[in-house]
Design a protein around this nucleic acid. Structure first.
Lengths: 137, 137
DNA sequence: CTACATGCAAATTTTTTGCATTACA
DNA sequence: TGTAATGCAAAAAATTTGCATGTAG
C-alpha cells in the first residue's frame, strides 16, 4: 500500500507511456495489494467511466512483460495481480481466501532443492496455506 | 506413469461411479503425468468418439473434489491436472515448459515459515523454475 | 430400479483482436 | 508529428448449465 515513487519515470524508462489509465491501474493494484481483473475494472470505472476492459487486459500484459506487476496464480481462483516487489511468498487463508505477503528470501531454498534434485533451478514460487488470525476466532 | 491400483474401488469408496469415461480420464492423466483439458479431450476422443468436453469438465470437478486428481496452476498457462500423489513439488523448464516432479517433503518448510511468520500455516505449494537438461544443450 | 453420469446444445464467462480515434513524448 | 495507447465492438476461448437419455450399482 505504499506510495509508488516516480511511477511516471519507471514506466517511461521501461518504454511504456505514462497514460492516465495506466497510472491509475498501477495505483489501484498498489492500493489493493492483490486484485483480480474484474475488481480492478469495477473500481477504476468509477474514476474513469470511459475505461475499457480491453485496456485493462492490454495493460496487464504490457505491465507484466515489463515486470512492473506480477501475476499470482492460485488453485481455483482467477488470476490475481500485484506490484512486483522484492522476494516474498504468499499466504492464503483456507477459510476466507485472504492473501497476505510473507517476507521470505527463497534463494537458499532454491539452492537446496537444486542440489538435492540435481536440476538447474534458478527461481521458485512458494505459496502457503492456513487459517488466518481472523478466521481462527 | 505407474499403474493405478484398484481405481474402480478407489472411485467407489469415494462415492463416485466407475464409468468407462471416468476410468479413461484417470488413466490418461496418469499416463500423461501432467495434462491440460484440451489435450486430455483430444487424446480420449480417439478412444471414445462420443466423449463430450462437458463430461471432462464435470469429471475434473468431481475428481478434484474427491482429491483423486489435483490442479496445478502455473503463471500464464492453462490449468494442468495430475494424479494426487504424496508430497512433491514441481519443476518447470523456463525454455520448453516441461513439467517434472521433484520428490520433496514440504512439511519442514511449512513449520519453518509458520514459525518465522507467526502465522498458522498447514500446507504449501512450491514450484521451481530453471533450464532443464535437454534445453541446456 | 434409481440416483448418478453422460452427451448435446445453449448460455456464460473470460480473454483476445481489429480498427478507428486519441494523446503522450 | 509519429507511435503507442485507448475504447468499442466483435470474435475467440474457456467453462458452465439444463435437460433428456443412458447406465452403474
Amino acid at each position: 500500500m505504499r506510495k509508488i515513487e516516480n511511477l511516471d519515470n519507471i514506466l517511461r524508462q521501461k518504454g511504456l507511456r505514462a497514460t492516465a489509465q495506466r497510472l491509475m491501474i498501477c495505483d489501484e493494484i498498489n492500493k489493493a495489494g492483490h486484485i483480480e481483473i474484474d475488481n480492478l475494472y469495477e473500481n477504476l470505472k468509477k474514476q474513469i467511466p470511459s475505461l475499457s476492459l480491453a485496456t485493462i487486459y492490454k495493460n496487464m500484459h504490457s505491465l507484466v512483460k515489463k515486470e512492473i506487476i506480477s501475476e499470482v496464480n492460485i488453485k481455483g481462483r482467477k488470476t490475481i495481480y500485484e506490484m512486483t516487489t522484492e522476494s516474498h511468498i504468499h499466504y492464503i487463508c483456507t477459510e476466507c481466501g485472504v492473501i497476505e505477503d510473507i517476507a521470505f528470501d527463497t534463494m537458499a531454498l532454491v539452492d537446496k532443492i537444486s542440489e538435492l534434485s540435481e536440476k538447474n533451478i534458478t527461481d521458485c514460487k512458494l505459496t502457503t496455506f492456513g487459517l488466518c488470525t481472523n478466521c481462527a476466532n
